[in-house]
């Protein structure tokens, strides 16, 4: 009958009206400042620097100031200065660390290339979006101290990815330890061999270093 289409349309809107009160599938609005949105895991916005220890962020930066990210950054928003001295890293090895590590977030385009190229898993993508400031220059230029965030934070925002990175790092560390152990063993064996045949060949060939 003529006009049933109109009634059907009225039914649709009525269903929406009633449904918005009890059906979260329909009512998708989040009242933002009070209720924070639940971001999808793959969401990324601006890089940050991973530290091993939340208590001592500057001392345990994974970054070794290799400057690959600085060179690869398409908008060139990263500025790094190497340190003069060396500090032990997480595995106790002496490493150079970044004396200055700045990211200009007003230039950064969140392309994730710095993350892709970093061989040390030291820089990762963040999930911040409340970055409005009243200052165009200094407040948007993030320093080393502001960029450093602990690994646990990384675990919380990108759990899958972080688990994979941690696994790889642990494997690397284990391999390095085994290698070091093997090297130590080889060294010891070589030393023993050298002790066994002291006088004859000692001055000619030194034992292999590694």
């Amino acid at each position: 009958m003529l006009g049933t289409g109109l009634l059907k349309g009225l039914g649709v809107t009525a269903k929406n009206f009633v449904g918005s009160y009890h059906d979260p599938e329909r009512y998708t609005t989040i009242e933002y400042p009070e209720v924070k949105p639940k971001l999808p895991e793959a969401y990324r916005n601006f890089p940050f620097l991973v530290t091993e220890n939340a208590m001592d962020p500057m001392g345990t930066l994974r970054c070794v100031a290799c400057q690959i990210c600085e060179k690869e950054c398409p908008p060139q928003c990263i500025y790094i200065e190497k340190s003069k001295d060396k500090k032990p890293d997480a595995s106790g090895k002496m490493q150079i660390y970044p004396a200055i590590f700045d990211i200009d977030t007003s230039v950064c385009m969140s392309c994730q290339i710095c993350v892709e190229v970093c061989p040390f898993d030291a820089i990762k993508m963040d999930q911040v979006f409340e970055i409005a400031t009243t200052d165009r220059y200094d407040a948007l230029l993030l320093r080393r101290e502001q960029l450093a965030k602990p690994n646990s934070y990384y675990q919380s925002i990108h759990p899958t990815e972080a688990a994979e990175v941690d696994g790889r790092l642990a494997a690397d560390r284990k391999a390095a330890e085994e290698k070091a152990k093997a090297a130590a063993a080889a060294k010891a064996a070589a030393a023993k061999a050298a002790a066994a045949a002291p006088a004859a060949e000692a001055p000619k060939t030194p034992p292999p270093a590694a």
């Binding site: 929406n16 009206f17 009512y27």
Partner: peptide, 10 residues
């Protein structure tokens, strides 16, 4: 308010 609810917003 009603328009909002029909369009699934508050």
């Amino acid at each position: 308010k009603i328009l909002g609810r029909v369009q699934n917003r508050p």
